[in-house]
Design a protein around this nucleic acid. Structure first.
Lengths: 207, 207
DNA sequence: GAGAAAGATTGCAGCCGCTGCAAGTTTGCA
DNA sequence: TGCAAACTTGCAGCGGCTGCAATCTTTCTC
């Protein structure tokens, strides 16, 4: 009864973490090009073959990326009729935050991403998958909302949701970049606050 | 006097085109995984080694990507005081359009991108570089504009420009996706028109 | 128009990321 | 305790990509 999760499962996440940590640390020390997968695996006490059972790519290991998912809980207070922009923005952030893992790895990841543009790109293209996931969730809600059915007119829920996510994603992209440029801002949520405000200002001004 | 460009230069772009064409065609025929670089090079009558003198990556060759740049001409009518959103959007499109080359390769590229998600991601991350380029151009203009100096208040020109590009980039990302989903729309400019309109509607509704 | 300089192409040898397979080991469950 | 499912591992191999040094082609200069 003490073990809510099986030994197997525990072991698995353990080596996952070990591999990610090893990959990130070695990368920070020597640069991604100078760190063979073999070395990463060795540092985590597994074979090279096992490494590729956990990550399909060396870059994924360095960044500690895993399949994004949406926890139903995050959708609890979610209403498309109120502050849709900010809510969607937060939902995006929640997904990224959960799959990227908070913990000490956060600052490590930021430093990695800051130093190596190639990895930055990888992270952004990971964000694309997240956006798609969120888009589907939002589209579903919009489709159910009476308000949007009349309002959005000739556009489908999916089309509208896609655009909403694109706009709502802007603060998050911005926050990504901000955390790269502004090392002192560790907490990306902070950057996100500022970005959302800035977004509103820009939209106001652009009108 | 007949040769405004040197023979060397002509030859170079010739084999560039040949390589890109070979890569794209073979990919459409057999899928990117089943097309070794050796085969692409052979079809373009060059050695494999030469291939890598032209493209740093097989994927780049398939998509025909090259370093993005901003032609000064495109900035002629550009004013940050009027329709900034649409103008920036068009600037983004101009850059992408010029570097991706119009010609017959356009429809080929769309098909490639539609069929292979991995290449789609590559194209998107290419778009990131374009955005950064455009951001710098816009930031410069904003910095010079009296209107923005008073308006944007506590944000720097660079910050503001970054956000503007992010929002203005939304229709373009949307158009990318649209051209993927809606095969009949060959001309991405058309998709862009619709996307910009949709963006305005969404912004209106979201308020 | 000859010869030097600059640029492009090529083969070769080799590193390393990544994969499929088949055998071995560990964990979960009845 | 014994079987099934999950996980690890070694091995052999493909193929993308690189540096290097030799050769060939275009351009420049006088």
């Amino acid at each position: 009864m003490s073990q809510l999760i099986s030994l197997r499962e525990r072991k698995r996440t353990e080596t996952w973490v070990a591999l990610h940590a090893a990959a990130a640390e070695l990368t920070l020390a020597h640069g991604p090009e100078n760190v063979p997968v073999e070395e990463i695996a060795a540092r985590a006490n597994v074979s090279q073959r096992t490494f590729f059972n956990y990550f399909s790519t060396k870059e994924d290991a360095i960044l500690g990326l895993q399949e994004p998912f949406i926890d139903e809980v995050w959708l609890d207070g979610f209403s498309v009729d109120h502050d849709l922009l900010e809510q969607t923005s937060r939902l995006l952030m929640a997904v990224v935050h959960s799959t990227e893992g908070g913990e000490p790895s956060a600052s490590r990841r930021i430093e990695v991403v800051r130093n190596y543009p190639h990895l930055r790109q990888r992270r952004f293209s990971y964000f694309l998958r997240v956006e798609q996931l969120v888009k589907d969730a939002v589209a579903e809600r919009i489709a159910e909302s009476p308000r949007w059915q009349s309002a959005a007119g000739r556009h489908s829920a999916d089309e509208t949701a896609r655009m909403v996510v694109l706009v709502a994603g802007a603060p998050m992209r911005y926050a990504f970049q901000e955390s790269i440029n502004e090392p002192t801002i560790d907490n990306q949520y902070l950057a996100l606050e500022g970005a959302t405000a800035l977004l509103r200002e820009v939209l106001e001004e652009i009108r």
